[in-house]
Each structure stands twice: as structure tokens, then as C-alpha cells.
Design a binder for these strands. Structure first.
Length: 678
RNA sequence: GGCAAUGUAGCUCAGUUGGUUAGAGCAUCGCAUUCAUAAUGCGAGGGUCGCAGGUUCGAAUCCCGCCAUUGCCA
């Protein structure tokens, strides 16, 4: 190993231990794993640790619902997570849990240090409390009617319908999402981390440790003023009890990032590595966290502040990435695009996805779109048609005519040189997480290789008497280019790289060896290294995702509070009262976005002889173009209501809790605009 | 509601500090070719760079407003 070998510790965000790994998670683990494999291929000492995030109310409640202990739930989840990760070739050096002795010790140690330096405050706050379950309720576990717009079934912090923000105690008809009981207000003393103590330090630190795009966002928080952070929760809570405060527990987000340290410590003890060398205040090693843009706040403010306060080293960098969208939209359960790792693996090998993500990942925080058609075409074209094709079209000649031995010289030194001269550029692109640019460079080499073989025409030479050496030379040239390309792609395609090594009769693809040509070298029989992605396999993933969802919904519907419990049937009315409501079939002749309105769509409804302008709060669930031409049911004799955006002349009927889960009514085929519903 | 990021060919994306006729891959079409997992090579068509203003000799690039998408609001 060279003198300039770096010591690097890398983490991915800890997956929460109450659900399965999905494509959104995988973007991050794949991005990190590629980076780690690259560092190792370069000969650096790089360690990759992760853990399950195993504490908090949602885990406690889910275990309760399943009738098992939280410990049993997180054990089971950990097994599932590790199985998925390993199948996706995520090469963690250590995968641990935040519910561990190491983590308990570090959490206590850091908390104590912060407290002793005066960075912890106590304050009594009022919170919603479930008298039946005898527990405090986090905002998202209190539901009720929006205090502003009266929308039903809104969460305790903000309204999906009108966008208002408020506190849970303001909700009308509030109920606990856990028991259905009416929450009461109750006081409790909470512990706070005084983030504001670290403002100067953080402003400095943020300046050269986060991406440009993140700085703007963080500045907003600085400008708003850093608030104290509530780090305690009352019993019953699934987590670590605060050392000097019986009945109080660390909030899950306090011990989650500390889990990075705990997992690493656990690994150090198994491998006789000096933990302190990595975490001492003046450590010379490097520490990088790969995270999603949603948790930037915790990793760029709380975490470095906690480390600073506790006298530990700070991260060398926090690398944020965007979200995965599918077909240009948020992953959606109902569209079948909320794809689980396991579902994907039932149909396709992981490297297709690894390559596709690599081909689209840059160093920024842009969202990454998985377009299923593009995915299939891109992977097939780049990997199978271009890269693997090179070996496929050369290997036959070498094996049949030359007993598998490559020629003793490089036929096209310039072309060979051009391919290896990209080594440092590609390394730099991997290092800076510009994988998409790296992939482009590599594919360009593959194009050149195919062009070369086309020009050299070994199949023509093979038929000419006395051209044997020319055939061997040109096919050996092709194999050598193939070797270089595979070495460059190794971080992304670990299994293909392994198979290519077997074919090429090599032990590894160490980066320093890339420039060495294979001369008079014996290779093995070529076997197809990768099959094309078939369209029906991709469709099967979407299909299975939809089916899983249906099964899941059935299960949760049984377990949770029923629709009727949430909203009991209203009091009985006479037919005459009902008859006053004039319901009509209406055709949606136009639908469009409403400027400045986050929730509304403007619908133009035809009743045959007249048209109505109606505003409907369904933007989160429907795209305008998907509605046009359809029929629906409207209240036609509702008094016109004047809104900020214009008059709404009626109302369309819809059911569902809100957000994406909102369904408007549609009559069976044959109903005509204007018909009365009675 | 506030803030941030994003919006470029059918699709997925590049476009460095503003500077000729806006690029690539895939898809489409034509030609060549058969060594290769119906792969490959050569060539062609295709864009008022989200919309509307402004600054400038000159804007995809800078400024303002608006629209849309995604995320955050501890």
C-alpha cells in the first residue's frame, strides 16, 4: 500500500426499522456503495458502516399492533434489511443497530458532555396525551378537523387541504390515531439541546462541508434563528432512558446519528482497529455521510453541533442526494411504483438498477427519475449491446483459433493509450460523485472499441490465408479494451466484474493495474455475462407491487380504526331532506391548475345545456389532463361560493382521507351529462 | 403560507465565468454489415432551452414576475 493511502469512514443513513427497503432507500445505498468500492479499488482503507434505526414511537406502536415486542420487531426487520442489502451487493463492512450497548454508552457520553458544558435546557411543555393508551402523542398521531377549513382527518401539524399549520391542540374533533380516544392536554418537562450555542461554529462549518445547493437552504435556517431542539420523550417510549432523568427517554433522532459511531465501534472491536484514531477531535481520518435531502437538517446542523459540543471530530463532508421518482412522479403505491427491493429482486438482477442509478447520479441534490422504458433500453444498449458485446465478438476467435491465448503486442497503441489515459479523469468523477459523467466516459470507450473492431474486420481476415496474426492482434486489442472498461465499471457492477475476471483469468481489477495490457495471456471460455432486461419482467415488478399493496391495505384496514369509527354515520334524515340535494351527472370538459392554489383544480363541468365552473381540492390526487373527458357526480343546486380564485358553482363528490388518497365518483358507462342522480 | 432545488429534442440528460448554425445517448428513419446475446458501423430528421418581461452589441446562461414538479419548515 502506498504512503498516501487514505483512511476513510463512510456511512449511509440508517433505515428505519419498521418497514421494508424500497427503491428510494436503494438510491442512497447504491450511491454510497459505488463510492466505497471505488475507494477500495484505488487501494484506500475505506470502511462502510450502517445500522438499523431501531427506536421511536412508530416502532413501539407497530410492534404493539403486531402483538410482538419491539425487540422482536427490530430483530425481524434487521434480518430482512440485511437480506435485501446483500442481494443488492451493498458491501457494508458492518451493519448494526441503534439498539445496542455501544450506542447506549455513546449516547449517554455525548449527552453528559453536552449537559456538563451547559448546552442542555429543561422546559415544561404542553402536549396531546392519549388517556386510554396513557402516552403522549406525537403530532402525526393526532388527527381531527382542520381549525381553518374544517377538512376532515387532518394530521396534528398541518392541513393537507388548505395548507394551514397549527398545533395538535387546535384541531377540532381531535382523536388519537392510536386508540381513537379524545386526546387531553398534559404538561411534561422536556430536555432541549441548545443549538443556538453553536451558531458561529455551524456557520463556519457549513461553509465548506456541504454542497452549494444545500448552503442556501441552511442559510434560511440560520436567518430564521436556530431553535432549541427537543431531545426527550416521556415513557412509555422505545429507546434509551436518559441517564439522569428516570422516565425520560432520548428522542430517536438523538441516538440515530450516534449509531454511526456505535456501528463503527462494534466493527473496530472485531477487527482490532483504533476507534479513537477516527473520532478524536483532531482525527486525520476522513468521515463522510451519505444522506437524502430530507434529513439534511439533522446531519448538517444538529449532528456537527453535537460532535463539537462533545469534543469529537466533525464529518469531512455530508453528501446529499435527491429523491427517486418513477415515471416523473413521486413513488406511489396506487400506481404500482412504490417498488420494494424484494419485489425488484424477484424479477431482475440488482446490477441493472445499480448501473441505471449510476448513469443518472451527479453530485447535486436533484431528484433521480426512474423511467421504466428508459431503464430497460439504457441498460440493454449500454451494458449488453455495447460493453459485453466487445468480449462476445472477440472471444470466439481467440478461443477457437489461438487456444485462448492473446497476442504478444497491442495492435493499436494509440487507442489503448486513449482508453487508459481516461483513468484519472474517471477516478476524479467517481471521487466527486459525478457518476453519470463517469459512465458517459466509459461508454465512449466502449463505442470506440466497437468502431475499432468494425474497421479491423477480423471476420474478413479470418477467411484470408496468412492473416492469422492480424486476427489475433485485433481481437486481443478488443479484449484489452474490454478489460479496461470492466475495471472502470467494477464499482458499479461487482458481480459482472467478478465474472469478467474469471473470463480474463485475473485476480482483481486494482486501479493501478488498469494500464497494464494483457499480453500473451491465456483467457477462458466466454459465457454471456449479462442478459438483456426484458419488458415483461419490468411489467411484472409493477404488477407485483400493485398486488402487494392490495394485500397490505386489506390487512391494515382490519387492524386500524375503521372508517365508521372515525366518522360515525350522521343522524337519520327524511327523504324530503335528501330530495333537496340535486345531484347530477356532469362531464368534465376542462380541468386546469389554479394559479397560486396549492390544492385546487379548476373544473369546467358540462350538464348538457349549461356549464359550471367548480373548484375542487383534488390537485394532490389528480392531474388535470387525466380528468378531462370523464364523467362525475356534482351537487348542482349548491349556492355559489365566492373564493379567492373566482366563483365555485357547485361541488364534486369525493371520498378519502386526502392527499394522494382521494377518489372522485364516476358513474358507470352510459350515464349522460345532466342526468339526475336519485 | 415561507424557503430551497429543478424545468433544454419523443425519452433520459450535458451545456463550464453570457459569445459563431444549442450537444450526447436512447428511440425513429435510411444505408452498410454479419464476428457477436437480432448485436455493430455510417448517415438523416427532430428543440421559439417552462411562460412573459428586462439588462446587453449578444442570454439556455444574468435580473424581475408568473406557472409547474419535488423537498424542507426543527
Amino acid at each position: 500500500m502506498s504512503d498516501n493511502q487514505r483512511k476513510i469512514l463512510v456511512t449511509s443513513a440508517l433505515p428505519y426499522a419498521n418497514g421494508a427497503i424500497h427503491l428510494g432507500h436503494l438510491l442512497e445505498y447504491i450511491q454510497t456503495d459505488i463510492w466505497v468500492r471505488f475507494q477500495k479499488q484505488r487501494g484506500h482503507n475505506c470502511t462502510y458502516v450502517c445500522a438499523d434505526d431501531a427506536h421511536g414511537t412508530p416502532i413501539m406502536l407497530k410492534a404493539d399492533q403486531m402483538g410482538i415486542t419491539p425487540q422482536a420487531l427490530i430483530d425481524q426487520t434487521s434480518e430482512e434489511h440485511q437480506r435485501d442489502f446483500s442481494k443488492f451487493l451493498i458491501g457494508f463492512d458492518n451493519f448494526y443497530s441503534t439498539h445496542s450497548d455501544e450506542n447506549r454508552d455513546f449516547s449517554a457520553m455525548i449527552y453528559t458532555a453536552l449537559r456538563d458544558k451547559g448546552h442542555i435546557d429543561k422546559k415544561t411543555i404542553t402536549q396531546a396525551y392519549d388517556p386510554e393508551k396513557e402516552m403522549f402523542l406525537p403530532d402525526r398521531f393526532v388527527k381531527g378537523d382542520c381549525p381553518k377549513c374544517d377538512a376532515k382527518d387532518q394530521y396534528g401539524d398541518n392541513c393537507e387541504k388548505c395548507g394551514a399549520t397549527y398545533s395538535p391542540v387546535e384541531l377540532k374533533n381531535a382523536y388519537s390515531a392510536v386508540s381513537g380516544a379524545k386526546p387531553v392536554e398534559k404538561e411534561s418537562e422536556h430536555y432541549f439541546f441548545k443549538l443556538g450555542d453553536f451558531e458561529n461554529f455551524l456557520r463556519d462549518w457549513v461553509d465548506n462541508h456541504v454542497q452549494e445547493q444545500m448552503k442556501n437552504k441552511l442559510n434560511e435556517w440560520f436567518d430564521a434563528g436556530l431553535q432549541n431542539w427537543d431531545i426527550s420523550r416521556d415513557a412509555p417510549y422505545w429507546g434509551f432512558e436518559i441517564p439522569d432523568a428516570p422516565g425520560k427517554y432520548f428522542y430517536v433522532w438523538l441516538d440515530a446519528p450516534i449509531g454511526y459511531m456505535a456501528s463503527f465501534k462494534n466493527w473496530c472491536d472485531k477487527h482490532q482497529v483504533d476507534f479513537d484514531e477516527y473520532w478524536n477531535k483532531d482525527s486525520q481520518t476522513e468521515l463522510y455521510h451519505f444522506i437524502g435531502k430530507d434529513i439534511a437538517y439533522f446531519h448538517s446542523l444538529f449532528w456537527p453541533a453535537m460532535l463539537e459540543g462533545a469534543g469529537l471530530r466533525k464529518p469531512s463532508g455530508v453528501f446529499c442526494h435527491g429523491f427517486v421518482t418513477v415515471e416523473g412522479q413521486k413513488m406511489s403505491k396506487s400506481r404500482g411504483t412504490f417498488i420494494m427491493a424484494e419485489t425488484y429482486l424477484n424479477h431482475l438482477r440488482p446490477e441493472y438498477l445499480r448501473y441505471y442509478f449510476a448513469a443518472k447520479l451527479g453530485s447535486g441534490i436533484d431528484d433521480i427519475d426512474l423511467n421504466l422504458e428508459d431503464f430497460r433500453l439504457r441498460v440493454n444498449a449500454d451494458l449488453v449491446n455495447k460493453v459485453i458485446n466487445i468480449a462476445s465478438r472477440c472471444a470466439g476467435f481467440i478461443n477457437k483459433k489461438f487456444d485462448g491465448v492473446l497476442s504478444s503486442e497491442i495492435a493499436e497503441p494509440e487507442l489503448f493509450q486513449s482508453a487508459i489515459s481516461k483513468s484519472e479523469l474517471i477516478a476524479e468523477l467517481y471521487e466527486t460523485r459525478e457518476y453519470s459523467k463517469a459512465m458517459r466516459e466509459i461508454m465512449h470507450i466502449a463505442d470506440q472499441a466497437n468502431q475499432y473492431i468494425d474497421t479491423a474486420e477480423p471476420w474478413v481476415l479470418a477467411k484470408q490465408e496468412g492473416s492469422e496474426k492480424a486476427v489475433q492482434d485485433c481481437c486481443s486489442m478488443g479484449i484489452n479494451l474490454f478489460k479496461i472498461i470492466c475495471a472502470y465499471l467494477a464499482p458499479v457492477l461487482p458481480d459482472v466484474a467478478k465474472d469478467a475476471q474469471a473470463f480474463l483469468n485475473l485476480d482483481d481489477f486494482a486501479w493501478q493495474e488498469i494500464s497494464k495490457p494483457l499480453l500473451s495471456h491465456k483467457i477462458n471460455k466466454f459465457k454471456p455475462l449479462m442478459q438483456r432486461v426484458e419488458e415483461d419482467k419490468v411489467n411484472a415488478i409493477v404488477e407485483e407491487t400493485k398486488q402487494n399493496l392490495a394485500a397490505l391495505e386489506e390487512a391494515t384496514a382490519k387492524a386500524s380504526v375503521s372508517e365508521l369509527q372515525q366518522e360515525p354515520i350522521a343522524e337519520t334524515i327524511e327523504f324530503a331532506d335528501f330530495a333537496k340535494v340535486d345531484l347530477r351527472v356532469a362531464e368534465i370538459v376542462n380541468a386546469e391548475h389554479v394559479k397560486k392554489a396549492n390544492k385546487l383544480l379548476r373544473l369546467t363541468l358540462s350538464l348538457g345545456d349549461e356549464t359550471r365552473n367548480v373548484f375542487a381540492g383534488i390537485k394532490s390526487a389528480y392531474k388535470p389532463e387525466d380528468l378531462i373527458g370523464k364523467h362525475t357526480i356534482m351537487v348542482a343546486n349548491l349556492a355559489t361560493r365566492t373564493m379567492k380564485f373566482g366563483d365555485s358553482e357547485g361541488m364534486v363528490l369525493a371520498a378519502g382521507p386526502g392527499g394522494e388518497d382521494l377518489w372522485i365518483l364516476e358513474p358507470h358507462q352510459g350515464a349522460k351529462a345532466g342526468m339526475r342522480v336519485k
